[in-house]
Design a protein around this nucleic acid. Sequence first.
DNA 1: ATGGTAGCTCGGCTA
Length: 259
Amino acid sequence: MKIASFNINGIKARLPALLDWLSEAQPDVAVLQEIKSVDEAFPREPIEDLGYIVETHGQKSFNGVAILSKLPLEDIQRGLPGDETDEQARWIEATVVGKQAIRICGLYLPNGNPVPGPKYDYKLAWMDRQIAHAKNMLRQDMPFLMAGDYNIIPQPEDCANPAAWADDALYRLESRTKFRELCALGLTDAFRARNAAPEQYTFWDYQAGAYNRNDGIRIDHFLLSPQAADLLTDCQVDAHVRGREKPSDHVPIWVELDI
DNA sequence: ATGGTAGCTCGGCTA
């Protein structure tokens, strides 16, 4: 089973690029971030025409996540548990039913800039909720994964120029420590587990020719539960997509699971 | 220190 994650930075602007990539990459499941659309305005039909079930959790203008699946979905949940007052659409999860069931969480973790400030506080509190939710899921038997735009640069080798990010919310020690807490629960960073090649990134700023200089950062991640990690056979980044017409500033990352 | 680009929406926020 091939499962992908792609921050598309706006479905209205990215539909042609998304359809092109889906057609060639043929993921069984894809989680999307930053759809920047309400559910009613999301262009379901052209995606359904490629054979996908479409489930969205959108909001006006900002954020918004979705799951696309060629396999049946069950028990779809919208929103990260732990704060009923949180209105930002950053989490969706569902059970994908193949030969073996797996729970797939799609997430758009808060950016957190500027630091310090309320946005950074929200990011760290959101990560505490994610950690609590991961603990709960680890008590269940079903394999699961949490995939998406984490807005976290885990290590210095995950960016071209660490000095440029030193005081950024994506790289600050508190952010990276929370990510490490998640991993320490027993979750596996699929890219680090299966892909040793250096200088591979998932995001390049639109400004200053960042992609042409490979001045990127690795912030889109797959964290796998122990049962899911046992099924992991590959993890790759579709970096070439960034060089196309009207690209997102992120590129797809995907895993192959032996189920 | 600023501005450089992009999306959504039509001024200003978010990234």
